[in-house]
Write a protein that binds this DNA or RNA. Structure first.
Lengths: 150, 150
DNA sequence: TCCTTGTTGAAAGAACTTTTCAATAAACTA
DNA sequence: TAGTTTATTGAAAAGTTCTTTCAACAAGGA
């Protein structure tokens, strides 16, 4: 998909959701498009200023939120940083309840073939991985059911 | 493994690495042990003060770093927050180069059975997932080889 | 072109993390 | 066990990162 096509897609998405298409928003979008992934807000701001000199960092934050809302951008990591006690393993498997935010670790088998296939397709070596699942824990599923019936 | 066993393990790890075993460090460790996963530094601080009243937040941060260095604790999410341009999918698969920090997305098949097995073992429903792989991209592998030969 | 109102950028504020430094306490020595 | 050394601590200050506030601006409809 070309840059222009993407911009048209974004223009539509914005209008449909009742937002305006502005120069700062186009600049942020274009920076994201041209850099695939892995930019932080400050980097996006610096690159974006070459496209829209008046662009402010605040607008970058706001636009990233907006694009996320529209499903056009996505935060790479979860917003709340946590610490967990863990063994010396480098591989991490977390299961997070979206309602009560409880976090458990789970044993994970059967990922090896997947990793090998990724390695072959991309040429990357893979040293460690993080698999983070989000859903509802049994308690919250039950509470939700109770609430629906009430 | 019991709490006491863990403390002995930590005492050894600290001494072997040339660090001292202190009350604040024991308190942080014990809080992490008793709470499995998902605490932020401030929460650890509050809980830790019941075990070591003088415990300061700064020491919590320092101890978490130390425990991470010793392989006894682990940060749940990566420290640098990034944004990536993405489609509307809720499932995310990132491959991050640990050297040049390039991030690419990759197609991911074959995770479904794994998720189903996790669901059965834990009782959680799973709405979305994040699979983050870390390794070296082909370019950096090559550069590393060149450097070794130089 | 005018008007309405969503959007912007700067400054201030909030939240989170790190650095600095004098006081403290762990661990070694005698 | 008491004395000594030095890593460690907690408080305050500084540094980062992100959010809120608000007057000025510009997008898009009339």
């Amino acid at each position: 998909m070309s840059v222009d096509t993407q911009q048209v897609r974004m223009a539509q998405a914005l209008r449909e959701a009742g937002y305006r298409l502005t120069q700062p928003r186009l600049a942020v979008l274009q920076v994201l498009q041209e850099n695939e992934a892995g930019l932080n807000p400050e980097e996006i701001h610096q690159l974006g200023k070459t496209l829209c000199p008046s662009l402010g960092l605040v607008t970058v934050y706001r636009t990233l939120d907006l694009l996320a809302e529209l499903g056009l951008a996505r935060r790479l990591h979860s917003e709340h940083q946590c610490h967990s006690y863990a063994s010396a393993r480098t591989d991490r498997h977390y299961l997070i309840c979206e309602r009560c935010h409880r976090v458990i670790e789970f044993p994970c088998h059967g990922l090896d073939e997947l990793l090998e296939s990724v390695r072959q397709h991309t040429g990357y070596t893979i040293n460690e991985h993080l698999l983070e699942l989000r859903g509802l824990c049994p308690d919250c599923q039950e509470n939700q059911a109770v609430q629906r019936n009430a």
